[in-house]
Structure formats: C-alpha cells, structure tokens
Nucleic acid binder design. Structure first.
Lengths: 263, 263
DNA sequence: CGTAACCTTGAACGACTTCAACTCACGTGG
DNA sequence: CCACGTGAGTTGAAGTCGTTCAAGGTTACG
C-alpha cells in the first residue's frame, strides 16, 4: 500500500544559497527597495518568534540576521547538512521533507510566514527544507541565537512557545495519518490551510494551494491519484469549489469539519 | 480504511489523582521507604530535564515537586483538563492518546523513565495520558516551573533540548505512519523500543513490551489483527523471537533495520 | 503555440480491515 | 486442584479502500 518509490527527485545544489555572501542572497537583498529590510518592516514582524519582543531585543535580533530568497522548488537545507543556521520565513511557503532510502517521501510540515526552520538538538539537520513557492527568509546563526537566548529571557520563552506549537501541529498530523481515511485527510488538510490563512491575517473566501497534488499526497500519506479523487469527491458533494488548480473555496465548512472529525 | 470505532474505552476518573493532597498520592509517598524520595535518589535523575543541573537547582526543582503513583490502565490527564501541571516519569511506561469523536484512538507517544508529560502552550491538555504499566511520577506545578525557568537559565535550556527531541520523535512517527507498510511499522517500532531500552541503560537481550497489541496497533495506525500478523511474520522469518507475549528478542537486527529502512 | 509537467479518470490489483472462530494465559471460586 | 470464565492474542476468509498501471486532459511557461 504505502510504498511510493520516487525516482524523479531532482534537487538542485544549494551551496550558494547557504552562503551568507553568496551572489543570490546579496542580489535578493539589493533587489528590495531601500536595500536591507529591517525587522521593523518585516512581514513576519508578528511571528511567534519576533512578536512580543521589545524594540531593543529586536534590534539585537536584526543584527544577527541575514536575508535571503529562494525560488520555488529550491532546497534550503539537505538532510545531513550541519545544523548551523535557523531560518524564519518572512514570505512564501516552505516544506520539510524526509526521504526514505528507496525514495519514499514524507512531508513533515508545511511552513508559512512567521514559522521557523532548523532549530534542532542535533548537529545535523534531519530533514530537507524546500521552497514550495518563492520564499523570503531571515537567517540566523544558531550559535549567535543561543547567545541571544541567554541575554534575553523573553526570546527564549517565545521560542519555547513556538516549539510547543510545532509539537501540537505534529500531533495533529499523527492523528490524521494514523486514523483518518483519504477523504477525511484531505478535508482536514483544507481546514488546516484555512486556519493558517486566518492566523496570517489573510482571511478571504479562497484559500491558496501553493503546493502540488504530489506534495499534498506526500504530506497526507496518500498517492496523488487518491488525493485527486478526494478533491473530486468533495467538489462533487459541493463541500468545496476549486476556482483554479491552486486555490480552494470552502463552501460548506460544516461538512468538511464533519468529515475531518472534531479532533 | 482506517476507522476503528472503539466502544470499550472505560477510563476511570482521575480526580483524586490530580489532587496534590489526595489520599492516593499521599499513600504512595508514605509507601516509599524513608518517606519522600529526594531528587538525588530519583531513578530519573539522569533524565533530560534533571540531568546537567547543579545540586542547587535540583534542590529548587525538588521543592516544587510532588510524587505520585499510578496503577496500570489509570489515566493521569484527560483531554480538556486544565494544563496546570507537568509530570516527569521516574518509573514505568505511559502513553499519550487522542480520541476521535467516534472513538478512533491514536497513540501519540509512548513515554518512559525520564520523559516529560504535559508541557503545552495551551491552557488545556490536548491529549490523554494513561499508564501502560505501574508508574511513578514527579509532578510540578506549571506556574512554579515557569518561575524556575526564569531563575535558572540552564533549566530552560535543558527543556528546549527535551522539546527538540520530542519533535524529532514525532517526525519519525509521522514518517512511519505516512510511508511504511504494516510489517515495516512493526519492525521500526521494535527497533525504537530497543533504542529506548539502551538509552535507559537497560541493555539486555530481551526487550519488554509493556503495552498490549491494541496499544501497538493504535500507535502504528493499524488494527490489532494486522499487528499480530506482522509479529507472526517477523517470528516466522526468524528476525525476532517472542519469549513471552510481552517481551521480544531481536535475533536479526539487520533484517529489521532493512525492513524499517535506514530512515 | 507547443511542449512538458501536472492533474484527472478508469480498471485491475493488493494490502489492510472486518468479521468470525479459535487458542492461550491467568485468576477465581467451587 | 481443577473447572470455568474472561480478556488478550492468533488465525482464517471475505470485503473494502487505496494503490498501481494506463490513458487522456489541462495548465503553465518558454
């Protein structure tokens, strides 16, 4: 059932992306009006990590950060890379993936503006991080961030909150993968996306679906065909509409919620 | 595919268990030779949270803690309970579960000596915590622990490490549920148990299986029958032996590892 | 406008579930 | 001491849901 041997994993080297002075990163910074973007103007200013910080601490945080951009499909970190940096997403969508030895892929998380990538206890990353859409990130040196944690207790507390939220999101996914049927998984996924949109303060009737059907399948532990059929079913039952391939409109939330189960 | 409507969820009220001055907790403390057990003698002294702490901080930690015991099958916290306490397991095995509205159960984690329960960002627990075996715990007042975090930076740092480990364990389970077949899941589970045993410093040829087949099924997103068949298959292929119903011996780790995949 | 990647749909297959019968371990009471 | 009963685990047969394989349709982008 669950084997999805994937041979089509073409991942481009991200060496220069991980280079603080790399051409791409510098270009991205320059490209922004007014040169370097300061934390005060950052779209992720209200993110879990940065919110609730007094200006003084934000200043310190800013001094320790570097901005960079990724094109859709580009890989930010590879499993096995030394875990020297922590990233905060200021625009776009990313995903964390894990590849089995025979190519099976599982997406561990979709991450949006304000979410963090790369804080691990290990010395190496245990996942790949790939851009689902074009992305802007804020990069921190992990060691420097540790220092900041020592200086600003509030920052560390803030981080603990983030970690808790991650754990709760993981548990939700675990329940989905372990105990929900295909249609239920997709229903739950759509509600998750809607909730995410709301939290980003971007309430709107239509929800963007930046990821491909394959990505959704690899997130929900299904195949692309099953995901497609689930979408069709939900569309046919008038629970959702699909204005375009990469956007959904939830027509009857009650039906979705019912399918997903209150859990 | 994945519906496991369970009606047989008889859970006993834990009101008195959650009572610091409750008869059961007091009795448990008295029952211990020499009365109250101090952190210095605690079997979980080397746990993630308590290890690496200077005696002075351990003293403070101790002052904020209460001991209690649970019989196997007893529930420590219910989903929806106010999240006022944090627990550290000093003996035995516990599990975190989530129940769907129609009774489907997913076990989110098995927790062993030294592991922590109940640190959440929410004001209410989002899971049930149940004793798999007889269990001894150390209870902390959450607010008091927060205070301690402020006073002892090392403690907070230690906690961050724990949170990271939890996240990595969750991600491993997510991969298992999303992308491994039934036999692979059981193989991975046995290797996980073995690794846990080692980390507890209780290396031995046979690994205890304190949980029932149903528990394993609800952890791995399978049915009890499928788990049983997987055990039989692994036994038949001579990868494992089952000295008793509740213990395993790994005969050919390479075969298990092969099945589970290096991931 | 054309090509390649992505998505959808259909049909056959297979893995896991469901349903059901049976075995085993263990504890209780006659 | 053993019969009995209960709960847990195993095994078999049939059914279901999701996968696999295959073909056709759509979208995006140069």
């Amino acid at each position: 059932m669950n084997y999805n041997p994937r041979q089509d994993r073409t991942v481009e080297p991200a060496a220069e992306i991980d280079d603080p002075r790399g051409a791409r990163a510098v270009a991205a910074m320059k490209a922004r009006a007014g040169g370097t973007l300061h934390c005060f103007q950052c779209p992720a200013r209200t993110s879990d990590l940065c919110s609730g910080l007094p200006d003084r601490q934000l200043e310190d945080l800013f001094a320790a950060s570097t901005r960079l951009t990724l094109g859709r499909g580009q890989t930010l970190v590879f499993e096995g890379d030394p875990a020297n940096h922590v990233y905060n997403i200021s625009r776009g969508t990313m995903m964390l993936t894990r590849l089995g030895p025979d190519g099976r892929r599982q997406i561990l998380a979709f991450l949006f503006r304000g979410h963090m990538i790369g804080f691990t206890a290990e010395t190496e990353y245990r996942f790949n991080a790939e851009a689902v859409s074009d992305v802007e990130l804020c990069r921190f040196d992990k060691a420097k961030l540790e220092e900041l944690f020592c200086q600003h207790a509030q920052l560390e507390k803030q981080f603990r909150l983030v970690a808790m939220k991650v754990i709760e999101a993981n548990q939700e996914l675990i329940f989905t993968l372990g105990r929900r049927s295909a249609v239920e998984r997709v229903a739950a996924f759509l509600l998750f996306l809607e909730q995410t949109q709301e939290q980003l303060g971007e309430a709107g009737k239509t929800i963007p679906l930046p990821m491909t059907r394959t990505d959704i399948a690899d997130y929900l532990g299904l195949t692309i065909e099953t995901v497609s059929r689930a979408f069709t079913k939900l569309k046919t039952s008038k629970a959702i509409r699909l204005p375009t391939l990469h956007s959904v409109e939830i027509v009857r939330r009650d039906e979705l919620a019912d399918l997903a189960g209150a859990a």
